[in-house]
Nucleic acid binder design. Structure first.
Length: 467
DNA sequence: ATGTAC
């Protein structure tokens, strides 16, 4: 095997500083190119550098070639700020509001709304909803494309959890994988049709991503992601799940599209920022028009990442259901980092970005988690036009991760969890329940957006770490 | 959030 080329080898060859080096190095990692000798690799790179236009339609090298050509000089001005509605404005920090106002000045923006759990993010705030005309903004979808909730409701009484705490902790340890190194091994793997999708072959950027996707499928990642057992309480007898009012055991998971979605988000954001140059305060809101090649690629890649995130949840729930020897009575799932083609009340078709917002179209079910020691809510959307048929995606952070680590004590958090009868595997101080806003107040401020069908109270939680 | 590296 040839020794790997490095950035400096490409610089010596004459590669300019910028994206081309990273893109070329990434391509060289792909199996069929990795096999080439270093001399052959250098000869190929030299040819691409000399005649990038010849490689613009090459399946392997189109993106590297594009990065070698001078960027189209597309400076775009902001326009007058359009109106939008804020829900629970008393809970929202000024930084998030400012980001939303910037987004409302994009010439492609048609409408927007800010959810009560909103906080500062990259580009659009987390908790921001943005409708655009024929444009998709990768950072208005978010880095974790298809980050979503999935709930399975089992025909088991709540005592089931209290009676089997150790057994169920062992189930979570066996059926879920957290962090960046731990994946399911060959014998443990479950197959999934999403790994056979054409997009891995037809979209140049995805051609070296199938391996990672296959390796990480069924895993949860880190940060605020979790898999937890808890008590479901169905409150509304008219619920669409057909469940009688009462208590059940539930399994709730929160995670996204892992490395696949992150690489798609970062790659297409850079592409957007190259082709759509906005004033500094708006630069992370760069868009791709849907009729451009890049826009169509992102749309297809985003949808693949969304389906992949869904597949990861399905494998988690499949493994747990098998370990319990049970079949769920009902399931509720929803993306909360995604973009959809939707129609506004006036009939216009728009792209609705929800970055940390729950789809809440009329009759659409979703899950809004609280914290480890506060209930989450099973909701039915009311299709409110003012929120662009959206609701919050949780309680929202009250305290930054750095502040949480500096100010909270392990013992205090442990005592708080114990007082609420919550068993936790992993989970750092930055995810402690007190770092989140009061979910009851957040729900209060979005009564017009969703109806509550039931609650989910966490009891046995697994997050990253602790193993 | 993240194959925690352009």
């Amino acid at each position: 095997m040839a020794q790997q080329l490095r950035g400096n080898d490409l610089r010596e060859l004459g590669f300019p500083e910028g994206r081309a080096i990273g893109l070329a190095l990434a391509q060289l990692q792909r199996k069929h190119l990795k096999r080439l000798s270093q001399t052959d690799q250098l000869a190929l790179l030299k040819l691409i550098l000399q005649t990038p236009t010849n490689f613009l339609t090459d399946l392997d090298w189109s993106h590297t070639a594009a990065a070698l050509l001078p960027p189209p000089n597309r400076h775009i001005e902001l326009t007058a700020r359009k109106d939008y509605v804020t829900f629970g404005s008393e809970y929202i920090e000024p930084g998030a509001v400012h980001q939303m106002e910037t987004a409302m000045k994009l010439p492609v923006t048609v409408g927007g709304a800010l959810m009560p759990d909103a906080h500062f993010g990259y580009g659009l705030p987390i908790g921001g909803v943005l409708a655009t005309d024929n444009a998709v903004i990768p950072y208005a979808v978010g880095v974790d494309i298809g980050c979503r909730m999935a709930l399975s409701i089992f025909p088991l009484p709540p005592q089931y959890l209290a009676q089997r705490v150790q057994e169920l902790k062992a189930v979570l340890l066996a059926t879920t994988k957290f962090g960046n190194r731990d994946v399911f091994r060959h014998g443990q793997k479950l197959g999934h049709a999403v790994l056979e999708r054409d997009e891995f072959a037809t979209i140049p950027f995805l051609r070296n991503k199938q391996e990672t996707a296959a390796a990480q499928i069924g895993t949860s990642g880190g940060g605020n992601h979790f898999v937890e057992f808890g008590i479901v309480e169905i409150l509304d007898p008219t619920n669409e799940m057909g469940l009688p009012v009462g208590q059940y055991v539930g399994l709730l998971s929160h995670s996204g599209s892992r490395g696949l979605g992150a690489s798609v988000a970062n790659h297409y954001t850079k592409l957007a920022m190259d082709t759509c140059q906005l004033p500094a305060e708006a630069k992370h809101l760069a868009w791709l028009t849907l009729d451009s090649e890049g826009g169509q690629e992102y749309w297809a890649a985003m949808n693949l990442a969304g389906d992949y995130a869904s597949a990861c949840h399905h494998q988690i729930h499949q493994r747990v259901a098998k370990a319990l020897g049970e079949r769920p009575l009902a399931k509720v799932e929803n993306h909360h980092n995604f973009a959809w083609k939707e129609r506004l009340a006036d009939g216009r078709e728009v792209i609705v970005h929800r970055k940390g917002a729950t789809p809440a179209g009329a009759g659409v079910l979703g899950v809004i988690p609280g914290s480890m020691t506060a209930p989450g809510f099973i909701v039915r959307g009311r299709g409110a036009a003012e929120s662009l048929s959206s609701a919050s995606h949780g309680a929202g952070r009250l305290m930054s991760r750095t502040r949480a680590k500096a100010e909270l004590g392990e013992a205090d958090v442990r005592r708080h969890l114990q007082a609420h009868g919550v068993e936790l595997i992993g989970g750092g101080l930055d995810e402690a329940p007190m770092t989140y806003k009061d979910i009851f107040a957040v729900m209060q401020s979005q009564q017009e957006l969703v109806d509550v069908l039931g609650t989910f109270t966490p009891k046995i939680v697994r997050m990253e770490g602790g193993v």
